[in-house]
Design a protein around this nucleic acid. Structure first.
Length: 569
RNA sequence: CGGUGAGUGGCGCAGCUUGGUAGCGCACCUGGUUUGGGUCCAGGGGGUCGUAGGUUCGAAUCCUAUCUCACCGACCA
């Protein structure tokens, strides 16, 4: 491709709206343009990258035994009513009507369509397992699209759906897809981590997310420094810090005027915050005889709302009690609450239970207890895991300690079980001739999001640094002063033709621009190698090739160049 | 949905308080100059000032309504 016949579309200035680096660079490098909130046009350079990512994903899917299909973007609303998601999915599901006033949706995902397909096409266990996938545009009407391509409303996703006669078969395919996902991210050249993801709401189901590690990620990932354990902080298990032990101190009431926060108490009583516990009051579940439940955490820990919501006693979604209601019920405000002598159910975090002789509110304004102990001073309570893990916690698998990093979710795999096959009655005849519902798995990769995530991970002050695997071009020819030098032009043209002939993705910058302009544009776009052709080196029969990532320049004989480029990674 | 801020040429912005012929930088076009890291000079084209209504002799500027966008939060995966 010649730049003179291409839509390069680079920009010097960053549009004001671009917040994250990938968004800024994608706009400046001429990869995408915004059409409306969360909607982007992909320009030639961006599309080249997108297509390369898609090709790798497709290849790994095929290798893993998945079969490609293509389903409609527009789906009948009836299917969503059937699965129950017409009501459950909420406003993120964009609903439209056709000319006959029938309901349709723009597909945010395709469980309904694919289940409907398989229900009609598959009738025998002999046809299983089956794994179908597509690479296709999805639409989710996000409340707040942001970070450019990272969280847009329209995006491209690879979604696969597998169908099985039993859980064992599902698990086999699940493991195969897990491996295929690892292969994809390794081939692209991203630093990533598979993490344990939410599995609670569908009961017994298994789920993993794949995260590209980057500081701008929206998720916190906890991982072990000594094993493969990694989980989203939302659900990483927090194990007890130390043993439960009996204390020796006397339960003592102390005055703590004005001290309403844990920090203030610790300062006032000159103790470690780890010696305190804090008590939070939340709404109880409707089925409970109580209105409120008390949650007790060690002073320095924070509540994990996802874990708490899963407890039967607690209302879901989680609702914190308001202070006026707490005062009416318990006769004191937030700052002086404690588990001793409380008239509502008490749930204690595992690590809070290990604190002996602790300090807590006395349920009287401006007073606290010191030397409090479980069992002795608080008779009835339940111990649960209700806090967020923090860096330095022991890993739940018993190996090493946890560290926390930011991640961008680029893949999510899930053992669905029979959720959809049951709702839509999708089954087959088994070996014994009886009708059985299918077990399903679903597996998503955000193809467009990978492009943005790759940039978040690979950039410098000059622009993007593409891994060779997904670079829009493998190499760019930058001629110096070609419009004056017949020799430069001749060498550049010949090299361009030779590279095209051997199938290298080459860009030839034949614009009548100053060298600096060309260098800057090509570094911004992030092409892995630049071949600089100038009279200065041609006089010695040499050509310079520069590595975008390392900045390293190599001088080569003109005659050896073609071979050298063909052998580049 | 709540809070905050912004809509002026393709992009980045000034002008608005105090109403009076719409400006700057980048980009673009022409000519010259320069040519191994975003040259310099001269000339030029392009804007219903988000939209609608109002006040006024006169509105980018004041008033009202409305739309859009961004950021923070909530929500979602």
């Amino acid at each position: 491709m010649r730049t003179s016949q291409y839509l390069l579309a680079t920009q010097k200035e960053t549009p004001a709206e671009a917040e994250v680096i990938s968004h800024q660079l994608m706009l400046r490098a001429g990869m995408v343009r915004k059409l409306a909130s969360g909607l982007y046009t992909w320009l030639p350079t961006g599309l080249r990258v997108l297509n390369k990512v898609a090709a790798i994903v497709r290849d790994e899917m095929n290798k893993a035994g998945a079969i490609e299909i293509s389903m409609p973007v527009v789906q009948p609303g009836d299917l969503w009513v059937e699965s129950g998601r017409w009501d459950d999915y909420g406003p993120e599901l964009l609903r439209i009507k056709d000319r006959h006033n029938r309901d349709f949706v723009l597909g945010p995902t395709h469980e309904e369509v694919v289940t409907s397909l398989v229900k009609n096409e598959i009738s025998s266990y002999k046809q299983l397992p089956l794994n179908l996938y597509q690479i296709q545009t999805k639409f989710r009407d996000e409340v707040r699209p942001r970070f450019g391509i990272m969280r847009s409303r329209e995006f491209i996703m690879k979604d696969a759906y597998s169908f099985h006669i039993d859980a064992q078969s599902l698990d086999q395919t699940y493991q195969r897809m897990h491996q295929a996902y690892c292969n994809v991210f390794e081939r692209i050249g991203l630093s990533y981590r598979p993490v344990i993801a939410d599995s609670g709401s569908i009961g017994g189901a298994v789920s993993h997310e794949f995260h590209v590690l980057a500081d701008s990620g929206e998720d916190d990932i906890a991982y072990s420094d000594a094993s493969d354990y990694a989980a989203n902080v939302e659900l990483a298990e927090a194990i007890a810090l130390g043993q439960v032990r009996a204390g020796s101190a006397q339960l003592t009431l102390v005055d703590t005027p004005g001290a309403k926060t844990i920090q203030a108490i610790a300062t006032l009583l000159k103790c470690d915050v780890k010696q305190t516990v804090k008590t939070l009051i939340v709404k109880a579940d409707e089925t409970s005889e109580h209105e409120f439940v008390a949650l007790v955490l060690r002073g320095d820990h924070s509540l994990n709302s996802i874990k708490v919501e899963k407890l039967a006693l607690i209302a879901s979604p989680l609702q914190m009690a308001d202070e006026a209601a707490v005062k009416a019920k318990l006769y004191c405000g937030f700052g002086s609450l404690g588990p001793v002598g409380l008239s509502i159910p008490v749930i204690v975090d595992r690590s809070a239970e290990t604190v002996a002789d602790f300090i807590c509110g006395a349920n009287t304004e401006a007073q606290h207890f010191t030397g409090a102990n479980w069992q002795r001073d608080v008779k009835t309570y339940v111990v649960e895991d209700i806090r967020d893990v923090v860096a330095g916690d022991p890993s739940p698998d018993g190996n090493g300690t946890l560290a926390i990093t930011k991640g961008i979710e680029v893949g999510h795999i899930f053992q669905l079980g029979d959720k959809y096959s049951k709702a839509m009655n999708c089954g087959v005849l088994t070996e014994t001739g009886k009708h059985d519902l299918l077990q399903m798995g679903c597996y998503g990769i955000g193809v467009t999001r990978i492009v943005a995530a790759a940039i978040e991970q690979h950039n410098d002050k000059f622009g993007i640094i593409w891994p060779q695997s997904i670079a829009p071009f493998s190499v760019v020819i930058i001629p110096m002063n070609m419009h004056k030098s017949a020799l430069v032009k001749e060498v550049a043209e010949k090299l361009y033709k030779d590279l095209c002939d051997v199938g290298v993705d080459v860009l030839f910058d034949d614009r009548k621009e100053r060298p600096g302009v060309m260098f800057n544009d090509m570094e911004l776009i992030g092409i892995p190698y630049s071949v600089v052709i100038g009279e200065r080196n041609l006089d010695n029969q040499q050509i310079e090739i520069k590595n975008r990532k390392s900045g390293e320049k190599t001088l080569l004989e003109v005659d050896n160049l073609l071979e050298y480029i063909k052998n580049l990674g």
